[in-house]
Design a binder for these strands. Structure first.
Length: 418
DNA sequence: TCTGGGGTCCTAGGACCC
DNA sequence: TCTGGGGTCCTAGGACCC
């Protein structure tokens, strides 16, 4: 048996923990650059705010209804996530952290009343962290996800905990569950299935698995089996290193100059290489991309350039240098740029990496420099020490005009209580 | 004015090997 | 008439997730 524990309106709930006035009020949190609504409380959903609604389109609606609007505060959400996960880990020896606000727990071999246990989990997380969660129970991950979805949508009846199995009673739930809401069935697959007359989870469970495999590949077939209670998707317990690392951002204002793009790219390389070193990897291929604003009626341009590195590297200054060479290949003047980013694509463990004849690999000196840099920034705060290429003004930076304090990660922003 | 960011997995087809 | 069989690796593109 699996449980899927999912935090309710996670980002909004984090804001509520430190600002209880928001309780029972409509709250939304915006994506980076104050772009779209990415988290909404039930009250905000009831007022018609949709997932991904661009903020400028709903601004009036928010004002009129006193919706509390926040820019995203990732250091807060990341820290709260760690607290939730740490709490959850005490309830099962096997846990997969699936996303910032979700985890699968395995209850294999546990001889317990699992519903009762799940209620205990829910209450403990709330008590320890202030975050409300819902729990879905099922014999497979797909069913646990489905049960969780049901629990969330029917909070009143379920109290946020729901179990689903393969019995007749569960089938009644599946009959009302839209096929497109199943974990792993996206909009494209949902469309194909609907055309075949498969509209609900129940329909999919009872369709021919070989036919489904032909249309939705092995991925779709696994979902069919999982709906039937046959577990095909395992818990992923090992913290495997990332195979790809991306850093990108939209600009807060139009950018035309190459030097500004360079500055932004240098910052992205800095972020991405920090992640790379943290997991003790090197990259053998970097990609940088630039693009104009596709929503704006201006001349459009987007392009990317890749560079292969024979021996790989995780040294920020080297990677900055290479990224500038990539930019030189694709930069065109007079375009209004909206976004740039870097992707590290061929990632390998640093240990035992192949060295090359011409000594282009990272030297012991490089490694020591990076180690020192990381130590200083760990101790003094992110960005305390950086390469000059990253610039100091960063006037192209993203908008974040309604951000709450970093309540839990900065001494200066600690809450004071009178 | 104004529309996010970061990931994974699967498949088909090409190129290559013996 | 008729031209093998078995395999790997890589890449681009598609689909999905939160």
């Amino acid at each position: 048996m699996y449980a899927l524990v999912d935090c309710n309106s996670f980002y909004c709930s984090c804001e509520r923990v430190f600002n209880p006035k928001l309780e029972e009020k409509p709250v939304i949190v915006l994506s980076n650059n104050d772009g779209c609504a990415v988290a909404r409380t039930d009250e905000a959903k009831a007022l018609g705010i949709k997932m991904g609604d661009p903020y400028f389109k709903i601004k009036e609606l928010c004002k009129k209804n006193n919706i509390h609007v926040y820019s995203s505060n990732y250091s807060l959400y990341g820290d709260m996530s760690r607290r939730v996960m740490r709490t959850l880990s005490e309830f099962s020896p096997e846990m997969e952290i699936y996303s910032i606000d979700e985890a699968f727990l395995s209850f294999k071999g546990m001889n317990k009343d699992l519903i009762q246990y799940s209620i205990e989990i829910k209450n403990t997380v709330k008590k320890y962290t202030g975050i409300p969660v819902s729990v879905g129970l099922g014999p497979t991950k797909v069913l646990a996800k489905l049960a969780n979805n049901y629990a969330k949508k029917n909070k009143k009846q379920t109290q946020g905990v729901f179990q689903i199995g393969v019995d007749k009673e569960s089938d009644e739930i599946l009959k009302k569950f839209p096929v497109g809401d199943i974990w792993g069935i996206g909009s494209k697959s949902a469309m194909k299935l609907t055309l075949m007359g498969i509209n609900t989870a129940y329909d999919l469970k009872n369709s021919n698995e070989k036919t489904i495999q032909k249309i939705l590949t092995i991925v779709g077939r696994r979902i069919v089996e999982e709906l039937r209670g046959v577990s095909c998707i395992e818990l992923e317990l090992d913290l495997s290193p990332k195979k790809q690392i991306v850093s990108s951002r939209s600009f807060g204002r139009p950018v035309f100059e190459k030097q500004e793009l360079q500055e932004a790219i240098a910052n992205h390389i800095t972020t991405a290489s920090e992640k790379l070193r943290k997991q003790q990897s090197i990259t053998k291929s970097i990609l940088i991309f630039v693009q104009t604003n596709p929503y704006k009626n201006t001349p459009q341009y987007h392009n990317s350039a890749t560079m292969k590195l024979m021996s790989g590297s995780s040294t920020t200054n080297k990677l900055i240098k290479y990224s500038f060479q990539c930019l030189d290949q694709i930069f065109k003047p007079d375009y209004e740029y909206k976004k740039v980013g870097v992707i590290f694509m061929d990632i390998y463990p640093k240990k035992n990496s192949q060295r090359d004849l011409f000594s282009l690999h990272d030297s012991a000196k490089d490694d020591m420099l990076m180690q020192t840099l990381d130590n200083v920034n760990e101790f003094q705060g992110k960005g305390s020490l950086k390469f000059a290429a990253c610039g100091v003004n960063q006037f192209w930076k993203m908008l974040s005009e309604m951000k709450s304090p970093n309540y839990t990660t900065r001494w200066t922003e600690l809450m004071s209580i009178r």
